[in-house]
Structure formats: C-alpha cells, structure tokens
Design a protein around this nucleic acid. Structure first.
Lengths: 347, 347
DNA sequence: GTGAAAGCGCTAACAA
DNA sequence: TTGTTAGCGCTTTCAC
C-alpha cells in the first residue's frame, strides 16, 4: 500500500528525477542510467501516478463508453467492438452508465474534464441540452445514434427504418397480413425512429392491416406485458408481432407461447438488434441485424481519428442493416433447414 | 472545446483563485463572493479538472469493476448491484476488462496508481502473482471469487459446491440416475470448484453413476459442442446434463434439442448462475442462483467500508446459493404450474 | 547525457 | 472572509 514516487526511485538509483523520468519513458539516457533506474523501480515496485502524469501531459490515454442500459446485450456487443479498436490504439476503455437524460448531460460535462480523452455515447434520449453539452465538451464525443440535422458531431447511425422494411417485406412474403408493432417508449430515439420505419414499411404493402402498441420499457418483462395486453384488447388477432428490439421480442414470444399460440404457425415474431439472445430462444427469433459491432468499430475509429486531428470536420456514418431469419417467422416446412444451420453456427 | 480553468473564473469574478475554489466547493465564503463566482463559472462553462483535483486530494471518487468477460450476463447483474451501492456513496463506477491472467496482474498494478480509489475484481484465474499484486496494490481491492487461504484480502465468495449439492439432490429426487457434468475450463477457479462440488454431491448419492466432460469455454457455443460430442461418445446416454454455468447449459439444451431428445422427458438440463438467460430459454433452464447481485452488493460495501477504514482487517463473506427450478428438470405433469409461475414473474 | 527548475490546475494551510 | 503561496507527482524545457 506504500505509494512510491519517482523521487524515491531517483534517489535509490542515485540520479535526478529528470533522469529517472527519461529512463523510465525511454527517452535519451545512458545505458547505465537506464539500468540503474529500472532496477530501482522494480525493487521499489514503482508505478507512475496516472493523475500526476495526466495533469502534466494533458491526456489520460483512457476513453469512455457511456451507455444507458448495460443489461441490453446490444451494448455489450458494441463495447466488445469498441474495445478492440481502442486497445489497438493503446487506449484503455472504461464503461460508465449514463442514467436518465439529465444525468447524461451531467455526465458529458463532468467526464469531459475528467479521466478520459474522449467519449463514445449511446444516448437513449437526445435533448437539446445534450447536443449543446456534446458540442461544448472539452473532449471529443462520438454519438452512436441520431442527432438533429446540422449537429457538428461525429455520429454513427443505424438504419432502423430500412431494418423495418426488411422485416415487413419478409413477413409479407411469408403471407402475413396483419402485423402488430410492439414499440418501446416513444420518447426515445429508437422508439421514434422504429415506429416511423414500421409505418412507412407497412404503407408500402397495400394489402397489410397493422396495429400498434407500446411496451413501457425495452425489456423482456415489458414486452411480455404489452403482448398479453395486446391479444386481450384486439378483436382480430395479429398474425405477426414486430418488436422494437430483441428483448421486447422475447417477451412477446413468451406471451404468445403462454397464450397457447404456436410460433410461427399462429403468429410470427420478430426482434431487432440481432443480439445473441435472438439465437438463444426456441424457436429462434428472426431479428434485424443493425450492425452493432460494425457501428461500435466505426465509432471507435472516428473517435481515435478525431483525437489525432481535432479540427477535422464532423463525420456521419450510416451502417446498413440485414435480416437474420430464424424459426420464429418461417413456415414449419422450412424449420428443419434453419435448425441445422443454427446448430452449425453454434457448433 | 476551450478549457477554462479556475484562474479565469477567479479573474472573471474579481476574486482570488482561493476564494473561487472555496465558493465552488461550498466552503467559507461571503454570499456575494459565492454569487459572483457561481455566475462567472456558469458563464464560462467552467468544470473543475478532475486530474488536477485528484492529484491534490489524493483521491478520484471513482471505483473500478474489473471483469474478464462482460459478455456473461452474471457479471452484468453483479455490476448493476455494485453500481447501486457505489452511486449511493457518491463514487462513480467504471468498468474495465481484465483479459488474461498476465494482463490482470498488469491491470491491478496500473489501475492501482490510476484513476480509481479502489477496485472490485472478478478474476477467472487466480495466480500467485495476482494475489501478490492485489496485496501490494496501492488502493484497496475486493475480490469476487476465491483466493488461497490466508490471503489478507477482502473477498466475497459464492458457494458453488453447495450449489452443486442442490442440483444433484434435486435431480436425484426427480429420479435421475445418470448425470453428466459439462464443466468449463478446469484451470479456472469456477471450473475447479464446480467440478469438486459435482463429485462430492454425486458421491453423497450411492445410486448415481456420473460422467464428466469439459467445454473449452464458458460459452453457449462451447457448451453445444461439448454436449454433442458427449452424446456421440458415450454408450449409455445420461439422463441429466449438469452444466457449469448457464451459457454452457443453454448450449447443452440446444444440443439435446437438435439431437431430437425431449427435455426434460429424455434428458434434464441444469445451469448455474441463474442469469436472466435461464428464464429466456424454452423450456426454462433450472439453475443455481449463486447470489450474484448479493455478492456484488456485499463486495461494494466491503470496498467502501475499507476506504473509510483502511486498516480494518480483511473480511471474507460467503453467500449461500439457492435453486431456481424451471421446466428443464421437472416432469411433464408439473410443467404447467411452473409455466404459470414464470409467466407471472415475467408479467 | 544530466540536473535544476518550472508548471500542469487544483486545494488548503497560513497570514492578514 | 479573503489573498498569497506551497505543493500534490510528473514531464520537459533549458543550461550545462
């Protein structure tokens, strides 16, 4: 627990602290000095104090990934992708929780003068204050999500509207005529965009008649409740449940199962994000891959690029979605083939 | 992006930097000074530089949770519990990845002189170097896991051996006679302890005949492979698959399903950790709740307690397990009741 | 190649 | 109550 400073190392090695610092950092120093200082540091168990070092250097070599809900596997997947890029560039990644909208603004503000050189943030709700805080932040911020047009901020977006089109096209091709959309909270960015995407996608198919409901959170439990309530409420049952994300989709899957409905024969179910959970349910959950890992990778590269060139103009990158079709939407005849494919992927 | 320091705030407010600091930190200062300084800080968008503040104060108000595999939901659950305690005590929690054994030692060393006042760590493998690094760390470290007896380190343990007893007792009561243990890597602490626990639990039931295999990772894919290989290898099939954690258990569940086995009629399956995934599969996965959230909570309290009283002697806390019984182990007759219970929990 | 010394931004002891 | 000043541990001129 004893805190040994560079002063002690220098004294131990019989050199000045300047020489000790140079030797430790691989700068100009005689072989003998380097050897003596290294030996002293090792013997004393010296590790440089990061706060002092950072105060002097004006950088920390740490980057933050700030996320609202680490319980959602899609963020875990993103974090993995970010971590790989960040480690490659010799930064350490730390994860912090954003909490609600107010605390997110507070976080950007405080983290900006804190222990990180840059921030990647996945905000659930984007307020004007948040945009202002991001633009005013003393360190670069990259946003995973969607900002008001004209924001001068590096941004990586998913195309959830296009994702909804993939879902509806697929369901229509499978003969579904009455899709029900189970959204998450509409005051969130994903909630707003996915609802708009659903409506646009349905409108493109004249034969469809859709219904909509809202889960009060992007969770399995909320999805379950919303689906039960939906079936209870409607006169004519939907033949497909289109969930705003995988967690809601899994809740809907359970609800349909508990109501004695066969999936996909009686009702198809889809999710969005294509998290590992989508492959874990039986039947597997058809889901839109919004490119979480790719978005994380790009976001990390944008951040590191901006750190190298702070004055560079803001970039906006959009990642294209794709559809991962599993058993929850495809006819019984095709299920064996899909099962075999999944098994191969898992094995 | 302009970095405004307390010097500028002081000048703007027409007071000394000492007065500015006092006003900002709520120490003695006249109402007028406070008002002027607050106004100046607000106008300039001043936020105190954490690195400078920490260098001076000798603390950061940040704690780290270091974990090997954030993809495992059990760590996510722990983190949630830790975060609540930590936030309550006005610390910020950051999450960092430990990586392999060597980099874990390196992490403890560097993080100790880094941007945190204390560390909670969940090491997968405990080496002598790691114990030494923890004992020598300049900040308090709390270990979630098991250390060699006599280590003077705050520790929170699960009782996975007792957990195995719960599983085997349950399976035996359900009439299973030939359990197969699917372990994770044996050179990890959980792998070693769970294997020992399985053997002891089986030995307590003279009528049982067990077999064992090893998945090469604590993941769904590895569990799937191990289960397929197991059924391929044995002459007489097991009537229960006892997995070392939920992820392996889910892989085993899929494998059994893909082999055309009915669960639980042909083969029962159990997991361990009782993560949210155990409730997501159909049939639901019977799993041992090792008290992840409780362990996280206790670990955070231990760390905060030690920060308040650094010389306190080391504590070791053990959290008792319980069994969450789901459809993967109970007879068809009992399944409806369990299904209803799960539905209630989800709704 | 090396040492003395300045200074990163902040807080706190001290003096006024 | 306020201002002056030292100093947290480090890196980096600058002079030698």
């Amino acid at each position: 627990m004893a805190r040994v400073t560079i002063t002690e190392v220098a004294r131990h090695a019989g050199v000045s602290i300047a020489s000790a610092s140079r030797a430790l950092n691989g700068l100009v120093a005689s072989a003998e000095t380097v050897q003596k200082v290294r030996a002293a540091a090792l013997e004393l168990g010296y590790v440089a104090d990061d706060t002092a070092r950072s105060l002097k250097l004006g950088r920390t070599n740490q980057l933050a990934y700030a996320v609202a809900d680490i319980g959602n596997p899609v963020y875990v997947e993103m974090m993995g992708a970010i971590e790989r890029v960040v480690a490659e560039a010799d930064y350490r990644l730390v994860l912090t929780k954003t909490g609600d909208a107010d605390s997110t603004v507070e976080l950007v503000r405080s983290l900006g003068r804190g222990f990180v050189d840059g921030i990647i943030i996945s905000p659930l709700r984007v307020t004007d204050e948040l945009v202002a805080a991001i633009e005013a932040a003393p360190v670069p911020v990259v946003v995973l999500g969607r900002l008001p047009a004209g924001s001068k901020v590096d941004t990586v977006m998913a195309d959830s509207a296009q994702g909804m089109t993939l879902v509806i096209d697929h369901l229509a091709a499978e003969g579904r005529r009455r899709p029900a959309f189970i959204n998450g909270p509409v005051d969130t960015t994903p909630g707003r965009l996915r609802l708009a995407g659903f409506r646009a996608a349905v409108a493109a198919h004249p034969g469809l008649s859709s219904i909509e409901t809202v889960a009060d959170d992007f969770t399995i439990a909320a999805g379950y409740r919303a689906a039960i309530e939906l079936f209870d409420r409607v006169d004519v049952a939907p033949d497909a449940l289109v969930a705003a994300n995988d967690l809601i989709g899994i809740g809907a899957l359970h609800a349909a199962d508990d109501l004695g409905l066969r999936i996909p024969e009686d009702v198809a179910v889809t999710g969005m994000d294509d998290t590992e959970l989508a492959g874990v349910t039986r039947p597997g959950l058809t889901s839109v891959d919004l490119g979480a890992a790719e978005r994380g990778r790009v976001a990390a590269q944008l951040l590191i690029g901006r750190l190298a060139e702070p004055s560079r103009s803001a970039h906006t990158v959009s990642v294209a979605p794709s559809l991962s079709i599993r058993e929850s939407t495809i006819g019984a005849a095709a299920r064996n083939a899909a099962g075999a494919r999944d098994a191969e992927a898992a094995g």
